[in-house]
Amino acid sequence: MPLITYTLDSAIESFFSEEGTSASRAECDAFARRRYGAAALLVAVQGSSSYTVIAGSESDKIIQFRKSGSPLTESMLKLAKAVHGDLVPSCLHLGWIGDPNGSRLYIYEMNRLPRGNYITARSRLSLFAEPWQWFTTGGHEASDISTIKSDCEARFKHLAATLPDRFLPVITEVQQAIPSLFIGSYAMVLFHGDLNETNILVDTHTITGIIDWAEASMQPFGFALYALENCLGSMGPDGWKWFDDVDDLRNAFWKRFIELTGLSETQRQLAELAGKAGIILRYGIAYNAGFLGMLGV
């Protein structure tokens, strides 16, 4: 599998050249300049569905232009803010930019969270287990659990029919666990949906922010644990490679997590199955053999 090298220029060029973007980079930068009276400064790591700038060197505001197919949902942002407080940026929808008859971009104003993306700092950081509880806990009783369960079952039915046969034992294991994951005694929590190294902001061993909540939803606890696995290895030109001390790191996470939450052994087993479900759902739809190697198959 070829190694894809990220560059800021190529990420921005790709965003504005793809279908679904009727506004230009110059138009977006001009909007920020008019609103704040200063030239827009680029954020070092850009998302695939958004273009993000800082509103001037002295500003505490971020301006983000998002594709119409990837809006931020107000209700989910409010829930994320209620659960995680200052780790989630405040957000104000400012309207749209681009051709009214084409694919306009949503415009959002957010407060600027401190420090940088985990992906730019991971080489000098070690995994610290305790902060993971901040974004894997929370819940919302008003969620329609039966609808979420049906959607989950449909996704795994699709994956069972489309992924190579060697993945079927893992998919079957998760399918058998789905009823237990959606019973009232197992926690339904706020699920980020795209919890990766570019959306986690860190300072030394401290998480300072979680950004890009466009794919947030309610799911059984543990679906976000693919993010833990992301921190225990890295993807290179030869595929996925675990760190040498991966077992010690994973055990340290679970030891500390159980100390903090009082999780029973049964709940832990379900959480680990939910973690497998999260990996399959995240990487299985757009099949990638390297990442699904996390499952050991």
Rank of each mutant, 00 (worst) to 15 (best):
A154R: 12
I145Q: 04
P71S: 02
F128Q: 12
E197C: 01
T147H: 13
S90Y: 06
N101G: 15
P100E: 12
L181P: 03
E197S: 04
G102T: 08
T162L: 01
Q175K: 09
A160D: 00
S143P: 01
E74S: 07
V170R: 08
L127E: 15
G116W: 08
H84K: 13
Q133V: 13
S90W: 07
E173H: 05
K81D: 02
F182V: 10
L163Q: 00
S70C: 06
D99F: 03
K81F: 04
C91F: 09
W132Q: 10
G184A: 14
L113K: 04
G116H: 13
S123H: 15
A154N: 10
D151C: 02
S68P: 00
V189Y: 03
Q133P: 09
E197V: 02
L113V: 00
R124D: 11
L77G: 12
P100M: 06
R155E: 06
D86S: 14
P169M: 02
S68M: 06
N199S: 03
S75C: 03
A187G: 11
W96V: 11
C91I: 14
A154P: 02
W132A: 11
N196D: 14
N199Q: 04
G116V: 09
Y106N: 13
T198M: 02
S143K: 08
P131Y: 06
W96C: 11
W134V: 15
I171M: 01
F167Q: 05
G95T: 11
T73I: 08
E109P: 06
R66A: 08
G138N: 03
H192M: 01
H93C: 12
Y118Q: 05
G102P: 02
F167C: 10
N111Q: 07
C91H: 12
E130I: 08
Q176S: 14
V83P: 04
K78E: 07
L77H: 15
L168H: 00
Q176H: 15
M188W: 10
D165N: 06
Q175H: 01
P131N: 01
C91Y: 09
H192I: 00
Q176V: 14
N111H: 06
T172H: 10
G102E: 06
S103T: 10
I119R: 09
E153C: 11
I107N: 06
A161G: 05
T147S: 14
E141L: 13
S143C: 12
I183V: 15
S143A: 13
C152T: 13
C152E: 05
C91E: 11
T137N: 12
L163F: 00
C91K: 07
T136R: 14
M188F: 11
A129V: 01
L125H: 08
H140K: 10
Y118L: 15
L72T: 03
G116T: 10
P164G: 00
L181N: 11
L92N: 13
L77T: 08
S146G: 05
A129Y: 01
H192A: 04
W134Y: 14
H158Q: 12
I148T: 09
L72D: 09
P89M: 04
R112N: 05
K78C: 04
A161L: 05
L168D: 00
S123Q: 15
P169C: 06
P89V: 06
Y186Q: 14
R115V: 02
P169Q: 02
G85M: 03
I200M: 03
P179I: 05
T137M: 12
I183A: 13
F167A: 08
I107K: 07
N117L: 05
P89S: 09
D165C: 00
N117V: 09
V174K: 00
S123N: 15
G184N: 15
I97F: 03
I171R: 01
S185H: 14
